[in-house]
Simulated assay, not measured.
Amino acid sequence: MTTTSRAVPGGPGRRPERPQLTERQEERRRRILKATAELAGLGGFDAVQMREVAERAGVALGTLYRYFPSKVHLLVATLQDQLRQLQETLRKRPPTAAEPGARVAQTLMRAFRALQREPQLADAMVRALIFADRSVGPEVEVASRLTSAIILDAMGAGGRPTPEQLSVARVIEHTWHAALITWLSGRASSAQVRTDIETVCRLVGAPADRP
Score class of each variant (00 low, 15 high):
T2D: 14
A179T: 12
A60Q: 15
A132G: 09
T107S: 13
L83Y: 09
T147W: 02
S189A: 05
P12K: 01
P207Q: 11
F131Y: 12
H177R: 14
R51E: 14
P138E: 11
V171C: 07
E27M: 13
V104Y: 03
I181Q: 13
R14T: 11
A57E: 08
R210N: 07
V136I: 10
V76Y: 11
E26K: 05
G44T: 10
P207L: 10
L152N: 01
S167F: 07
T162M: 06
T4Y: 06
L180H: 05
D123Q: 14
M1D: 04
V168Y: 00
L129T: 08
R51F: 06
V72F: 10
G11D: 00
G10D: 04
A114T: 10
A188E: 09
V140P: 02
V53N: 10
P100T: 04
Q20M: 08
Y65N: 08
G205S: 05
A178E: 13
R29V: 10
P95R: 13
Q192T: 14
H73C: 08
R31I: 09
A157C: 02
G43S: 10
R29P: 00
G10A: 02
A191V: 09
E198Y: 05
S185V: 14
L61W: 04
A157E: 01
E26R: 15
V200L: 14
Q49M: 08
Q80N: 13
Q87Y: 00
M155K: 01
F45T: 03
A149M: 01
V72W: 06
V76T: 07
F45Q: 10
D153I: 03
A179S: 15
G137R: 15
T195N: 08
F68M: 07
T107E: 07
A208E: 14
L74R: 09
I172Q: 09
Q25H: 08
E88T: 15
M50S: 12
I130F: 11
P9H: 03
K34C: 04
A169S: 13
A57F: 08
A98V: 14
L75G: 09
V104G: 03
H174W: 04
L108H: 06
L64R: 08
P19C: 02
P19Y: 04
R160C: 01
R160W: 02
L90Y: 01
L64N: 11
A206D: 06
D123H: 14
G156S: 04
M1P: 02
S148Q: 12
M125W: 05
T22C: 07
L152Q: 10
A178I: 03
R6D: 02
K92R: 15
L79Q: 14
R15A: 11
S148H: 08
Q87R: 15
I150F: 04
V171A: 14
